[in-house]
Every structure is written in structure tokens, then in C-alpha cells.
Nucleic acid binder design. Structure first.
Lengths: 195, 195
DNA sequence: CTCCTTTCTTAAACTACATCATATTTATCG
DNA sequence: CGATAAATATGATGTAGTTTAAGAAAGGAG
């Protein structure tokens, strides 16, 4: 399966496209290969592309004044990644986005995306649906973070994203879950001892 | 200005509608009046409407097993309110949504919204834009919550939503910001003493 | 295979915030 | 308007999670 077929298969989960429409949709994207440790977004530069992960893994994070890392999102195959605030408003990014494995992306440029949405009602519907699902996802995340302890948040992550756990470094997962890497290490150890 | 004019003025911030389109859009909504302390959404019942606040104020919150309240969202004039996960997937709600003032809403029913989006590309665009802006907003919120202390989160809320502060009870604000009402009381007092 | 860097672990001391208990102020409603 | 309930304030005590520090394990470059 080519990268574009993979994107099309993904899109067809949300809207039904004819072969011609699918081809047109995919034609707006470009394939980009990046190596582990390479950055695709950096603070102060506007995030000009929305990226779909064909293969590999990414981490987006902020660095605060005191030098601490705070992971905002992980992305693996069939996830989107961007500094969304930078992308949709086309203003400078505040986040870093880095490849944590050698990866392949399909990227669409901001203005091209606007054209695409105008070209076909179905394409607009697609972007509406993924925005709504993303919003629903973040609502669940906010509520869960407000209502659960560090340990419960970790357990929940294990349960919901087992395939992420092996691929992301522990310090990154800890900061995604809002705790220190030392504390996550203790939680893991506490668990291992129990079983 | 009528309720529908208020909705239309809001929508025109995002898409440009002809008078006929505006009229059609508004015709899908119904005006509902609710009194303070009245619930518009409750756990286990599917949230069948998306609500636009014409006048008044609402709070959406979850109650955990140990009986604690956790505020997820506030909404005043020109904000939308729903249990978004319940609404978009049309499955049972987990949140309560209660009026914290006597209020007026414009509500659209789920199936009607789907019709509306199909009827006109511009209407689809409108819902796509508000979902994307909502998503960008929640990203900022998650990042801020991960990176700031209780006091900083309160200061930030004061700065960004000064007009909410006077209208929402303190215990609700505290739980929105992820702290206890006692701790927020202390923060406020500490501040008052300084100035 | 080896050096060097990055990541992970463990433990002791510390702190931001929670909990519990009680007092005070502010709403609500007959 | 007065009685009762709900919300806020304040102090004492407790704890989940942080900080600091040091060592062990794992990865990557040559």
C-alpha cells in the first residue's frame, strides 16, 4: 500500500469518496521523510503544514522558562500532528514537534487545505468531523485529568493506548500525564512488585 | 434584537450568509427558557441538543464516585454548551449541565443539525470552524494546566475571563481550575492582603 | 567493542495543595 | 422580615507528588 492509499483509507472512515475524489484529495499532500530527533515544528516559526503520520512516531511539547518539558501530544501511524494553534491561526508556534522514530509523513500546506475544503463539500465535512472528534477526545482528557490521581492517569493510558507505551520514552509519557519521570518510575515499580 | 438575530450575528463572524441563508439557518433552532438551578443535561440521558446561550449562564460538571464536583465548562452569552461527547456520538451523557442564572437558549436537535450541514456548504464550514476553534482553545487549556500552579491558573482565568468571575460560584471556579474551594479562597485572600 | 550521552531507578527531604473541622458571611424562601 | 440553608473563610494537620542527588542501565557514534 502506498502512503496515499493509506491516507485515503483513513479518510474513507469518515466520508465516502469516489475514486476520482480520493485521488484529488490525496494530490494535495506531499510525502516527507524525517529522521529520529529531527524537528518538524519549532517555537517562533509558523506551523505551515498539517501532517498525517504514515509511519513512525512524534512528540509535541512545550518548554517552560524553568527548562521543563511538557508533552502535549503523541502521534503514531494514522494520527495527525501539528501545533494546532499555530496552524489554524497561522501565527508563530509555541511548541516543538520532534520525530521520536525515523518517520514518513503526508503534509498539506495551509492554503492548499483551504482550497481543498472549498473544492468539495465532502472534504469540508471530513475536516469538520476530525475536528469534532479531536475536541471530544480533549474533553475526555481534561475531565480525566481533573478527576484522577497520577497513578490512575497512567493506568488509563496503558489501557487506552497500549501501543504507544512501548514507543515513547518514559520521561515524555510522564510529562504528558502531568507528573515527573521519577514519580512515574515509582508507580511502575510499585505495580511490578504487586504482580 | 431578537434571539435569532443574536445567533445570526454570531454566525456571521465566521461565515458570510445572505439574508435568506441566515433565515434558513436560524429556523432550525428553537428558543428555550430555563430557570436558575434547572438542568438541561443529566448523566445517562443522551444529550439531544446543542445549545447556544442567548442570555444567562451555565455550568457543566461531572460528579465522581467520592461525591466531588468537577466543573468542565462555563457558558455565558454567545457560548455553546453541551456534553459534547454525548452529543456528537449520541450516547448517554456523563455530565450535568445546570443553569446558574435564569437563562434563554437557542437549541438545535442533533438530526436537524445534520440536515443543516448537508443543506449548504457554508453551514458545514461554520460547524467546522467552531469545532476547530474549540479544539485550539482546549489545547491551550491543557498546556496551561500542565505547566502552571494553582495560583497561576487562577490569575490566568481572571485575565482571560474577567466577565465570568463575578457570575460563577467560587466552588465551581475552583473545580474548573483543578483545586479545592478552600485553596482558591486562600489564594484570593493572599492576593487581597498584598494590594 | 568501547566511550559518552541519554534515560531510568531509588531514596531522602520538601512543598503545594488536600482534608477535616469550625466559624462566618451570603442567599433563599416561606 | 426572620429562619434556614448554602457558600465562603480560616486554621491545624496530612499526603500525593516534587526536588535533589547519585548510581545503574541502555543507546548511539565512531
Amino acid at each position: 500500500m502506498t502512503s496515499k492509499d493509506q491516507l485515503i483509507a483513513y479518510v474513507q472512515n469518515f466520508v465516502t469518496l469516489t475514486p476520482e475524489e480520493a485521488e484529488q484529495f490525496a494530490s494535495y499532500f506531499e510525502e516527507v521523510r524525517v529522521r529520529k530527533r529531527q524537528f518538524i515544528v519549532q517555537p517562533n516559526f509558523t506551523n505551515k503544514h498539517r501532517s498525517f503520520v504514515i509511519k513512525g512516531a512524534f512528540r509535541s511539547y512545550a518548554v517552560t522558562d524553568d527548562g521543563q518539558d511538557h508533552t502535549v501530544q503523541f502521534a503514531i501511524e494514522n494520527w495527525w500532528v501539528s501545533d494546532f494553534n499555530s496552524y489554524i491561526y497561522q501565527h508563530p508556534a509555541t511548541l516543538f514537534i520532534v520525530a521520536i522514530e525515523d518517520s514518513i509523513l503526508l503534509q498539506i500546506e495551509y492554503n492548499k487545505e483551504q482550497e481543498l475544503k472549498q473544492a468539495n463539500h465532502k472534504f469540508e465535512t471530513f475536516f469538520r468531523i476530525i475536528a469534532e472528534k479531536g475536541l471530544a477526545f480533549e474533553h475526555r482528557r481534561i475531565l480525566f485529568n481533573l478527576t484522577h490521581s497520577a497513578e490512575a492517569r497512567y493506568e488509563n493510558f496503558l489501557l487506552n493506548f497500549p501501543n504507544f507505551v512501548q514507543r515513547v520514552p518514559q520521561y515524555a509519557l510522564a510529562s504528558y500525564l502531568g507528573m515527573t519521570t521519577e514519580f512515574l518510575s515509582r508507580i511502575r515499580n510499585r505495580k511490578a512488585r504487586k504482580s
